[in-house]
Design a protein around this nucleic acid. Structure first.
Lengths: 252, 252
DNA sequence: AGGTATTTGTGCGTATGTATT
DNA sequence: TAATACATACGCACAAATACC
């Protein structure tokens, strides 16, 4: 392959036509190699599709197909009118008994912020009731939150808390931007994880919008139950992480 | 909606045309409700597309679109010439320090079997070498295995073992169908997990074929390192699970 | 604030090579 | 061999979102 150590995005760099590999696959491989080799760095804007087309001597559709596969694998992200950008490497996210989002981010040198998207008083469905150890139909508070590190959305979560024990904690969360700090104002000085269950699926349109993901990206889904210092269940949460932005590290 | 308690797959069951919902979405919802309601049970073959078309008074293409969305969500699986089948509920797969696939399956009342797809002597890449605590370029044995529960593929794994310590263990694995038993013949009486890292992505064609998945399904990817009774690193593994068939339960 | 250029997204039509039936 | 389906690739045009001046 042609080594590219400097950057003239339109310099002719023809493909190996007639070989076994299709044009779009060769293009995808070369761009991926340029990313891996550091020619294009995370967060950086790639050359335009027309420039790639000129460089490789192909139609723009062919370049789009190549970039499409890279986008599907989470290596790049295209925004209409803006350009195509190299994605950042996944952030290691440690899951342990005492995982705190804000502490993890602080350790990684990134600023954490939790945002309350919505809250509602509702009644516990069967699965939520079982998780919280209460009767089905008991009143619960449901919070929907979005978590960012340096303004990049990392996860969104739906949290259920028993009522009336935690009445008003949504307002506290909105002020503090952290469940740990909101708990502190409701006399929960310490809490830890009782159980964790992990699955994965494709993001739906609403989830993709909140997490600023392109369509069809993969989510890691984490269902967890937290208990207070006395072992009583106080919280059930379903967290959604972009699998492209986060690796889960199990701390056992 | 029409309640269906018996099963005449062609009995007329018209849609709510002209309402806000498209025909294919209504059909998908009804079939999903029938699965959730237990009319169609896991592993069972659904009525043919033509029968659904007759039942709902639509074209077969409309039924295909509905079944396509259910297949994309992992609820059903279509096989050409065979029919469309209801998928099983996800199997809880516990990840702990001493997770053993065969024991887990035995506990779930299912028969476990490991199959050696391939093995090769190679040299450790940087990441494998780091995981095993050896020098990059050291000789390692690479095993590719497929794991089934009651003949259904649950996971496939790529395992790296240092050489010459484990020379010939591929043959032992082929005989025993279990890494635990193969280790036993190489004087590893006990081993446990040192680290676990979880991500998720879409299956490629080869992985989908081995795991008997339709295209575009989601995989849980688990990178783990195992140590022997003395704490020495003996094994690095990358396991791929179909996210539709398995839920990971973290045992902390 | 507004208009223009740039860039990605989408649709259509056409042609070609390959694999299947 | 013929018919068919499918993936690949090219060309043109326009829409939609963004960036820039």
């Amino acid at each position: 392959m042609t080594k590219r150590t400097h950057r003239d995005p339109t310099a002719s760099d023809p493909l190996d036509r007639g070989a076994g590999l299709t044009a779009w696959r060769q293009i995808a491989d070369r761009i991926e190699a340029d990313i891996a080799g550091g020619l294009f760095k995370p967060g950086e804007k790639l050359p335009g599709e027309m420039q790639f087309a000129q460089r490789f001597g192909v139609n723009r559709h062919t370049v789009r197909r190549a970039l499409g596969t890279l986008a599907a694998r989470g290596l790049v992200r295209a925004t209409q009118g803006g350009g195509t950008f190299v994605e950042f490497k996944p952030l290691p996210y440690t899951i342990g008994r005492k995982t705190r989002f804000s502490e993890l981010m602080a350790k990684a040198g990134r600023e954490a912020r939790g945002e309350l998207i919505g809250s509602a008083e509702t009644v516990a469905a069967a699965d939520i009731a079982e998780a919280l150890g209460i009767e089905t139909g008991s009143p619960v508070l449901e919070l929907v939150t979005l978590h960012r590190a340096d303004e990049v959305p990392i996860s969104m979560a739906r949290t259920w808390l028993p009522l009336p024990r935690f009445a008003g904690i949504d307002a506290t969360y909105r002020q503090t931007g952290s469940l740990t700090r909101a708990f502190a104002r409701h006399e929960i000085s310490d809490y830890s994880r009782l159980s964790t269950r992990i699955s994965a699926r494709i993001a739906n349109a609403e989830e993709a919008a909140h997490l600023e993901l392109s369509r069809g990206r993969v989510l890691l889904v984490i269902d967890s139950i937290n208990v207070n210092q006395h072992g009583h269940r106080i919280q059930a949460t379903r967290s959604l992480f972009s699998a492209d932005r986060v690796d889960l590290v199990i701390d056992q």
